[in-house]
């Protein structure tokens, strides 16, 4: 499996990269971690004429809290997220997710931003960012703009990113006190995409949910934000009956297709089971019990 020929640039600055994208338009592809792009190129399912390798641009790899957000740079690797004590302490949903993407070797190169920008509904971070209410920063010729993650995905492998824009940063709102999250994924084996996975981020106050985010992975043509299930939680006590009802609704919001990972019924049921389990885990984490 050999990729088709292409021209290659390795810009040293963001502006250089953006002008290359402007120059080559739809013929260009951005190479960051490459763990989705290069396999597609080897299979010749992708054959960009020009590859813009952004790995040489300084200052794009970071994980830090600032301005009310956890900010993650375009070149931050999954392994770095997984290794971050800050993330493990304050963003368990993100830590869970980074730990189940691909396999340990893939995670050393794969980036969180690439996982989002590739917009594969089977990818894990889209659901997580939907649950977290994150936003992304797109930088192009006219400067940077912020896009709410719920407006980012437009279809299978498509986003609102313009061909000359680069996803430069991810912004996750800092959690309020009493928050907890979890990502639960059923995969056929390590390294597989999810048969179904559920991301949950909740905040508790006085034993009731004050906010809830639920994202669903690989159970529809796009990552799904389970808004009705979220609504079924907010304002309700964090008890088993609430959880069960929200999980039931989340399953309704899933729109899976049958494939080698299972039937429609199976996947829908997984969403229900995983939503309930993720909520229970998120609650224990919110209470500081886990």
């Amino acid at each position: 499996m050999i990729p088709a020929s292409f021209d290659y640039s390795s810009p040293k600055t963001l502006s250089e990269a953006i002008s290359l994208l402007q120059q080559h338009g739809a013929d260009a592809k951005i190479l960051s971690g490459g763990q989705s792009l290069i396999p597609l190129m080897k299979l010749r399912m992708a054959a960009p004429k020009h590859v813009v390798d952004i790995n040489g641009i300084d200052g794009l790899a970071y994980i830090k809290e600032s301005g009310g957000f956890l900010t993650i740079g375009a070149l931050t690797r999954e392994a770095d997220v997984d290794a971050s004590q800050l993330v493990h302490d304050r963003y368990p949903l993100l830590a869970d997710t980074a730990g189940v993407i691909g396999d340990p070797l893939v995670r050393n190169l794969a980036t969180v931003a690439g996982n989002l920008a590739h917009a594969d509904p089977a990818n894990d971070h889209p659901a997580t960012m939907l649950a977290l209410g994150a936003s992304v920063v797109a930088t192009g010729p006219k400067g940077a703009r912020t896009i709410a993650i719920s407006d980012f995905f437009t279809g299978i492998f498509t986003t609102t990113l313009a061909p000359d824009e680069i996803l430069t940063e991810i912004r996750v709102p800092m959690p309020q006190a009493g928050s907890g999250g979890a990502y639960l994924k059923v995969e056929r084996k390590v390294g597989d995409f999810a048969a179904a996975a559920v991301a949950v981020q909740i905040t508790l106050d006085g034993g009731s949910f004050t906010s809830a985010g639920i994202g669903l992975t690989n159970v529809g043509p796009m990552p799904i934000k389970a808004t009705r299930a979220e609504k079924a939680l907010v304002g309700k006590p964090a008890v088993e009956s609430t959880i069960v009802e929200a999980a039931r609704i989340a399953a309704e919001e899933a729109d899976p297709a049958e494939d080698l990972r299972g039937s429609v019924d199976y996947k829908r049921s997984l969403v229900r089971v995983l939503t309930a389990r993720a909520l229970r885990l998120a609650i224990t984490r919110a209470k500081g019990e886990h």
């Binding site: 290659y8 390795s10 490459g34 290069i38 390798d53 340990p104 070797l105 893939v106 050393n108 190169l109």
Partner: peptide, 15 residues
Amino acid sequence: GKAIKSCTAFAVQAD
């Protein structure tokens, strides 16, 4: 120093 799959990286990236 990081373990990677060398079938999923281009030689130019190792320059």
